[in-house]
Amino acid sequence: MRHDHITSTKQLSRGDIEAILDRAGEIAADPLRFADRHEDALLGLLFFEPSTRTKMSFSAAIKRLGGDIVDMGPVDSSSVKKGESLADTVRVVEGYADALVMRHPSEGSAQMASEYVDVPLINAGDGAGQHPTQTLLDLYTIRESAGLDGLTVGIMGDLKYGRTVHSLAQALTNFEASQHFISPESLKLPRNVRYDLHEEGSSIKEHTDLQEILPSLDVLYVTRIQKERFPDESEYRAVAGEYQIDADLLSAAKDDLTVMHPLPRVDEIAYDVDETDHAQYFEQAHNGVPVRMALLDTLLEGQA
């Protein structure tokens, strides 16, 4: 892979993605073989927004490669609170680490930060922009359960602000996937993602009702619709209720439908779905460690 920084899935070719997923597969099969691979490596964690999962997953990944973390800690207690620019922060912190992982509330923050540093920088979420490592673990999960080509994939929920959705939809254009987008009218895919799918020759099939497309799906990727996206609570309740699934509703789906979710969920997937063979979201979350190990291994190897 020729990339120093991972800011968006748009920069990843099919070959890049497959190389990372293959390595993740090797790691998952024999993690101990990779245990001292990057013994002195330090991963800098810059989380300008609270995150538990992604941060823990990256920490576990670097530690399982033999390395360690240096953590900026919460924004409240850092110099950012004192008004330091992001450009300055990353230029200081790159001196402490061999690679950086960053989550920031502004779109484009990872791209900007990457222009100021020489160590590899990984975007762990930039506002409503991108979340490429989530996509890599999503693709790994899809590949494990259904294979990556010839699939019919439904992506549902907040497609407008959902960064995991944007990254996944763009990455899937590398594979022979037919993508269906299911959302309320007000939360449809943003113009830039539509533009990219169009440029890649993917047709955009949009639905406001899951039921009309559910029986033909191989994968259903569910995301959370946040209350803050609506003017008031009652409107939120009315709309969000349309995009919740339970075991009963899934009886209309294919037997081997894979249901995924970037987690955390609130009420968009009922607990009774957990008991069905469709549920892959916990497996998906666990895949974060080997996939992030594979990505870190690739990037750190490139540095050596």
Binding site: S85, L86, A87, H104, P105, S106, E107, G108, S109, Q111, M112, E115, D126, G127, A128, G129, N192, Y195
Partner: peptide, 26 residues
Amino acid sequence: NCITVDNEPVTSRFEVLDEGVRCVYC
């Protein structure tokens, strides 16, 4: 919510499309 409109030292950059322009950052 684009990083380029924050108080950062970065210069805005846009790719020119057939119709319109696209922010290189967000």
